[in-house]
Design a protein around this nucleic acid. Sequence first.
DNA 1: AGTTGACCTGGAGTGCGCTCCAGGTCGTAC
DNA 2: GTACGACCTGGAGCGCACTCCAGGTCAACT
Lengths: 134, 134
Amino acid sequence: MSYSIAEAARRSGLSIDTLRYYERIKLLEPPARDAAGRRAYSDEDLLWLGFLTKLRTTGMPIRLMREYASLRRRGVAGAGRRKAILVEQRRTVAERIAELQSCMDVLDYKIENYEQIERKLATENNPKVEGLTA
Amino acid sequence: MSYSIAEAARRSGLSIDTLRYYERIKLLEPPARDAAGRRAYSDEDLLWLGFLTKLRTTGMPIRLMREYASLRRRGVAGAGRRKAILVEQRRTVAERIAELQSCMDVLDYKIENYEQIERKLATENNPKVEGLTA
DNA sequence: AGTTGACCTGGAGTGCGCTCCAGGTCGTAC
DNA sequence: GTACGACCTGGAGCGCACTCCAGGTCAACT
């Protein structure tokens, strides 16, 4: 199967502009073209796009994704480095998750604070509002 | 206690430029000044900075942090909206964590793939390398 | 034959969150 | 008294990842 750029955009969740942009900056092999010179994305192209968007979602910077893409073009020779990039990214993501968790704890604490204050106001009708300002 | 901008930067983990920037865009109340006109951050300022950086770490956009900051200036009147912002952010962070988790699963799968291939190459000395190109 | 709409290209523009710079003031150390 | 270093201001610049635009081509429909 092959897909127009609009269809590829729909399926990948990226915009048409972003697809062309990714091609320009060499994240994507230039896809095949139809008789009229229009891009015709293959299933393989879409799989690769899917993986790229996963990497993007992890927050991998585009320059690193470009390196990965170029290593892919070099086949087996680049496999070691490719794996290293993924392992490193895994570590980064794990750290990021931990960081978010700890921030969420702070949010929970603050929210709990607001709720306590609400309860106080509701049950005691107490006009004191210390702690509300932070 | 009060702190020079350099000390405040050190303690908050932000750069001096960022501290001045945050003040300019009204994330921060203008701190006190010493006799020579230099900024003198209070402990309270640092607490607020600490909370701000937590919010930033969760990925909250600065414009929302500004809204939160301005609500804080309005005291109790803004408490409801402040809580709502935190609750919403909590939700956003939880989603983000889930998203990262799922991406990490993909990374794990890919890494496992590379490892299988390495094992194959090591034990069978087999030159076939299918699957290495994605 | 004409209109429409999807696509093309190269290049400019955007929003975000800083980061850097020039040129100046001030207080302390030598 | 002068050299130094930390700080000040207003404003320009930067890196990132897109996003948009003008002006054009092409195939299909009416």
